[in-house]
Nucleic acid binder design. Structure first.
Lengths: 337, 337
DNA sequence: CTGATCTGCTAATTCGTATTACCTGGGATC
DNA sequence: GATCCCAGGTAATACGAATTAGCAGATCAG
């Protein structure tokens, strides 16, 4: 049987109220506890090792000092670890600084190979608010979270289910980063540049193409829908492209490798820019030019934003962080120059 | 303002009791709800999106379906990630299967560079029970957890603070694994074998030496207390050692590298056996003979053990899992043969 | 000497849910 | 006609801590 304040009260010959007052160090005008009584209570607490039940506490108060973390895939298996890790590192660090615990919603049942926030025995309310992570977050879940007024922040994604719902998020500014790099390529003398990637679907893809287009309005765009890489490379060369922008570092590496296979040099004959980190392990250790997504910082900021929301502040609910530009070795003036 | 059962009750024109009964699907003789009433209540619940407050629930019940995870270092920074990750992967997997959420105690204040379980505002009771992970778990904290009767399981460590306290743990059987490998070396014809490592202090170290001694009672033991590696190598060669057992894969690699530096071949001139995984990144991709610690499985088993404890079963509180032997390429008959 | 103020506490209530005990009206049984 | 039973609920209470209201007794002002 576990100890309650009532037990402590009995042992210290005071009321449960007094125990609570001592514990919470209340010295209001309405409740003055003389040192002698206070010490007596504290002594009993020390001797028994009593700790307050945090759950009973929060029934009363508004905050619980727990932040939920909902991931749409398992966190720890190494397959998704590379993706989630940097975010979680920042989240953990920030939570530690703020004295918050993190609740991983591993109990969410998996349907169709994905976890769902909303299910029969929804446990979101265990936490004061939650952080949502995942490559693909279903729009209807976001919408419901917003309409139910549940405090949450989406990390890394910035898709809005519809115009009416304002989804709080911390994202990365792909537009600026891509634009800056495209401009840099222009500055180095590249006349024909190309963007290889879907450029639509996820906002992260759309944003990169947008940034590219801001500078290279008429640059080539190739959406490699299951097209073999050699095919893509053929088209690039046929159109005299000297600098190519790729959404993923792993894809960038594959493309560069293919180019080298044809006797081309990188960046001499073809500059390759990686617009983001590798989504899967890459064997080569080439230092690709491009940018890194500030994942750890995004995690940190997300905790900050959620805390602000919880404490009633309403700062800018949608935050974009600058990407870290990487000079690297694969972006240089074209050979002809 | 969030919805309560009282609100649902009002809307459905029933009592709060009835709402609770419907929600929990109680069809006992003591409470029979006709389909009509039940449907009316369920309709309101659906329309409002009401979900029960899990905290208020557990105030009443015994279980909360939350397992605490206490780590003595941060989990996600890549420095400790390699260590914690496999454990956590198993824990997460098992928690998911059992419908449990995981609470990371990131709020525990850091003193002397380490987290502490026990501090002023101890929050262990948020969870039904907890898993303890860490390279170095202070004995006094273990002792206190035991005396306070808090349900927990220590993962990977099996140190007992004193004989009276029975610490529940899931560990790895280093003794058997080391003994098996030593026997294998003997079988291959090695006459002089050596064990390089502290062999005391942590039980994991002591256990390995113990397993080694079971087979090679008079084998050489070198405790490399800050001794330069070349020194250790000198001694091995001077004593005609042909097979050496090293506690850590990283150390094994360093030693093998040093041997090769002197023109020796591995395993031709010297067999090297790694008694465990690398505790720090190792550049080489040599496939060392030795064993792996079954970290993921240990995580899984720990959840199982904790669940058993929580449900009142008292199985064997201390469990040892077999290590995975690795044939590898660094253990072979000595050259002379 | 009377009322006001202060000290040092405690009884009662609250949070949201689950459970237990009981209530009511009608039909069946004796 | 009295008793019992049963369906269909509800009122009351418990869980553990926090808070609000308030109660004795001492002290002080006037």
């Amino acid at each position: 049987m576990r100890l309650t304040q009532r037990d402590i009260a009995r042992l210290a010959r005071v009321s449960q109220t007094t125990v609570s007052l001592v514990l919470n160090n209340r010295a209001d005008a309405s409740a003055r506890i003389p040192a002698e009584t206070r010490d007596r209570v504290l002594k009993v607490i020390r001797e028994t090792g009593y700790v307050a039940d945090p759950l009973a506490r929060r029934l009363q108060q508004q905050r619980n000092q727990i932040l939920g973390v909902f991931t749409y895939e398992s966190v720890f298996p190494s397959a998704s670890a590379d993706f989630y890790h940097p975010f979680l590192s920042g989240i953990e660090e920030s939570a530690e600084e703020r004295g918050l615990d993190l609740l991983l919603f591993t109990s969410a049942p998996v349907t169709d190979g994905r976890r769902r926030v909303f299910h029969a025995n929804n446990r979101l309310r265990l936490a004061d608010g939650s952080l949502l992570l995942g490559r693909h977050i279903p729009a209807e879940e976001l919408a419901r979270l917003v309409t139910e007024n549940y405090p949450f922040v989406s990390v890394g994604r910035r898709d809005n289910p519809d115009s009416s719902a304002l989804v709080p998020y911390v994202g990365a500014d792909y537009v600026s980063a891509t634009a800056t790099l495209t401009e840099r390529a222009r500055g180095l003398g590249h006349q024909q540049v190309a963007f290889v990637g879907p450029g639509e679907g996820a906002e992260s893809s759309a944003d990169r193409l947008l940034g590219f287009r801001q500078i290279a309005a008429r640059g080539l765009h190739i959406a490699p829908t299951d097209r073999p890489l050699t095919d893509v490379l053929d088209e690039l060369l046929a159109k005299d492209v000297t600098a190519v922008f790729v959404e993923d570092l792993a894809d960038a590496d594959a493309l560069a490798e293919a180019a080298r296979g044809r006797g081309l040099t990188v960046p001499g004959d073809l500059s390759v820019v990686a617009l983001g980190d590798a989504s899967r392990p890459v064997p080569s250790d080439v230092d690709y030019s491009g940018f890194h997504i500030p994942r750890k910082e995004m995690g940190r900021q997300a905790v900050g934003l959620l805390e602000a929301i919880l404490s009633g502040d309403t700062p800018d609910l949608q935050q974009l962080l600058p990407c870290e530009l990487v000079d690297g070795s694969t972006l240089a003036p074209p050979k002809g120059l």
